[in-house]
Simulated scan of single mutants.
Amino acid sequence: MIPTFTDVQESDQCEELRDYFNSLGANLTEQDEEGFLKDLTKIIGVCDLCFKEDKDADKQSVLNSIVSLLIQVPQTDPICSELVNAFCAKLVDVSTPNNALICIKILQNLFEGTGENPKLNYDIYYSLVKIAGSIGRIDLVYDDLHKVRSTYNKDNVGLDKVQKLLRLLHEVLLKDDSHEASKVMIELLGTYTEATASQARTDAHRCIVSFISNPNTFLMDHLLTLKPVKFLEGEAIHDLLTIFVSDKLNGYIKFYNSHKALIENSGLSHEQNLHKMRLLTFMQMAENKKELSFQTIKEELQLGDEDVETFVIDVLRTKLVKAKVDQVNKKVSVTSTMHRTFGRQQWQQLRDTLTQWQANLAHVHNTIASAICAQYETMTPINPNPIPS
């Protein structure tokens, strides 16, 4: 039977926990004369034995008892951080798919119990991310990047820990939410300065690969401005990024023929790269020409006759390009397209569009005002002094 640990002195609670774990095969000695902290250290060392229990409620009861003891340890005592980290490590080790949700609940209780103390609860949150990520439930512990940024920053936990957490979040989010993963990676690279950019080689490389491999990401020119990415200039991985930013399909094929090992060792798929480069090349073609023949598309994108129409339909599904397909005349009429890069020229176009939109609104406003005035002028005036009958 699982003991209930409520309204019990720390020493008595440790004694009951010690007896309980000894009944499961532990070999904990009698109460330590130095106080309950030494006892608690030993108990945490064998706390994973409670997972022998069949009922989840029993496991949670025991683990929550340990949490109640941890919360009572003075946070100013260095041993508090050691005990919390040891407990987190134990739960990470036993967080199989069957136990993960229990471990998350227990660590969330501990997290709440530590209060607003980022230095202490950083390791708790890091463990929560690791466990939640292992079962594909990052949504249980992660809301948005802003919250993480405001809670854990270099001022309260140190830059190394911030970067460590962002790396883990990126790795986990990449499996479930590629858009959010991209935001986290940009945040991570933004933590490096020109002086430390050389230390970010691995992160920058991982960033480039994740953006290229993401089937829903097509705009990548902003990566070229990041200091860690700029540090890679002259290397093949940087050349690959510039191809996906502004080059066409032929440029990628030439690169691949010379760097097959890089593509394979980076975990990239050549077939997926080809498909993405065809989409990007079509976008670039659509920017410069509003009418494209099937023959031009076939030659530029190296497609078979029977594949052209299917490819164009795939492009339209992405909503990167809006166009009409003329099957009879075998051509595509482009109405709008997303730009592959957004530089000075695109900002000028946006400014011109907004200026024209503003002018159109003013014209509509003046037209309506004139119409209202004209309507009032045609109305029969009312005689303020009517003649009595």
Rank of each mutant, 00 (worst) to 15 (best):
E309A: 07
A181P: 12
T367G: 08
I368R: 15
L110D: 02
Q13A: 01
E82F: 06
G45R: 02
T378K: 11
L303D: 00
D305M: 14
V325F: 05
E180V: 10
D144E: 04
D176H: 07
L17N: 02
L159H: 13
S178L: 07
C50H: 00
E309T: 10
A323V: 14
S127T: 01
P97E: 13
I44F: 01
Q108S: 03
L274P: 05
G25D: 15
R167Y: 03
V92P: 06
A371I: 14
L107A: 02
T96W: 10
T196E: 12
D56N: 05
N214Q: 10
Q13F: 01
D177V: 03
L159E: 14
N250C: 08
K161E: 06
A369L: 14
S11D: 07
K248I: 13
P384V: 14
V209T: 06
V84I: 15
L110W: 02
N216L: 01
E171I: 10
N156C: 10
I66R: 01
A100G: 04
N360P: 03
I313M: 09
T380K: 04
M277L: 12
Y152G: 04
S65V: 08
I208G: 01
H205F: 11
Q72A: 13
R18D: 01
E287S: 12
L166F: 10
G190W: 11
N257D: 13
E377F: 05
C80S: 07
L28I: 15
L219F: 05
D203T: 09
T337L: 04
R137A: 02
L169G: 04
K130W: 04
K55Q: 12
V332G: 03
F211E: 01
P74G: 09
S61Q: 13
I368T: 15
I138V: 04
K161H: 07
H259V: 13
S210G: 05
A374D: 15
H238G: 07
D326A: 09
D19H: 14
K90L: 02
S258A: 09
G251R: 10
F231L: 06
K322M: 11
Q72E: 13
M1S: 11
P78D: 11
K319G: 06
K59Q: 01
I253S: 03
L361V: 15
L83M: 05
T318I: 07
L232V: 00
N153Q: 11
T337I: 06
D58V: 03
V129D: 02
R344C: 07
E287R: 14
L145A: 05
D239F: 04
L28W: 05
I79W: 03
D93L: 14
L188M: 11
D143L: 05
L301C: 07
Q348M: 12
V73K: 06
E171K: 15
Q348R: 15
C373Q: 14
K119E: 07
K324N: 11
N288D: 11
N214E: 07
L140E: 02
I102R: 00
M285N: 04
E377L: 13
Q75S: 13
T4D: 09
Q199Y: 09
V8E: 15
H238N: 15
I368M: 14
A132V: 01
L316P: 04
L174I: 08
E15P: 00
F282R: 01
T367N: 10
G45E: 01
S246C: 12
N273P: 13
S333A: 11
D7R: 15
N250H: 13
L40I: 05
